[in-house]
Write a protein that binds this DNA or RNA. Structure first.
Lengths: 161, 161
DNA sequence: CTTAATTAGTTAGCAGGCTAACTATAATAT
DNA sequence: ATATTATAGTTAGCCTGCTAACTAATTAAG
């Protein structure tokens, strides 16, 4: 029974609080669905992105794709390696970097994982038009830009002191 | 240089990852601005909501307004009390619940806090039309509903087993 | 009235973001 | 050739969400 809720009644007052909550809820919805596979949010997200970027991707590239910092990723990959779903191999051409590959077991759960995520995604986007989804995605990208600029200008102002 | 980014290139692949990242960045932008006041994100958000709901609000009502669970709030309020910015007083009519009040010191930083947040908000929403912001807010509410339904139906399916 | 169920709040501990400080390798400058 | 700087990854530890299990007070049932 959602009507045309004026922006200032929702997003504005709590600033970005709503975004955080919706994010947590969407995340939870998927996590419930893939829990039987022994995966948490950070782990299934990482698996999906490795698959998307193709095996052999470096940790740095993966962290950028995920939009998280290296230390956050390191922990997740460690867990995935302990679960024997992936392996990390040092790149022979640049011994600083490590490339990521699925194990047999890791590759074998990809299909089920993909299926379940697609299912949940359909439920989350239920009732949205393509135009609406595009508008949201565009808004998010724009707000991300604004936030980055805002952070940058503040950091700069501090250093100039 | 953001063009008309097709939804499936952004929000879809990472599902709700973008929302999480934008949320973190917006949060960071404000936090930098209010750090000199000795406040973190959870603390300034709580202060703003207490002010909005008026002093004397219960912890339960505050947690619902913030969209977080009680234990998350308990910790934050404990810190605010240790900073002597608020006090918690047992409600005489229902000794289970506690009501929240600002201290002198707490009330005195509200003005500065409000000012800085308003400033950052303007930067984050820079370039957005009212219609765009409303569309995003509406989309978030709708997706939250979808997520809640999705979680509920999954939980129910599990219990029926 | 006494007992059972519900409710507000707390504590303990997990999940997954983050920064700061570190190691080891590679690239650049002198 | 050597010394400096930059880069990929790790470790340690903070912040703030969460659930599960608890206490104490209130409400509902028998």
């Amino acid at each position: 029974m959602v009507k045309n809720i004026p922006f200032y009644e929702t997003l504005d007052l709590t600033l970005c609080g709503n975004m955080g909550r919706v994010h947590r809820l969407c995340r939870e919805a998927v996590t419930i669905a893939v829990e039987p596979l022994g995966l948490t949010q950070s782990r299934w997200t990482a698996l999906m992105h490795i698959n998307m970027l193709k095996e052999g991707v470096t940790q740095l590239a993966l962290s950028q794709s995920l939009g998280i910092e290296m230390p956050s990723l390191t922990r997740t990959l460690k867990q995935l390696e302990e679960q024997s779903l992936i392996v990390r191999r040092v790149d022979e051409h640049d011994k600083r970097s490590k490339k990521l590959y699925f194990t047999e077991q890791g590759r074998s759960i990809l299909h089920t994982l993909n299926e379940r995520i697609t299912d949940i995604k359909a439920q989350l986007y239920n009732g949205f038009s393509h135009a609406q989804l595009d508008a949201m995605a565009y808004g998010l990208v724009k707000m991300e830009e604004n936030a980055l600029n805002c952070i940058k200008s503040q950091t700069k102002a501090k250093n100039d002191t």
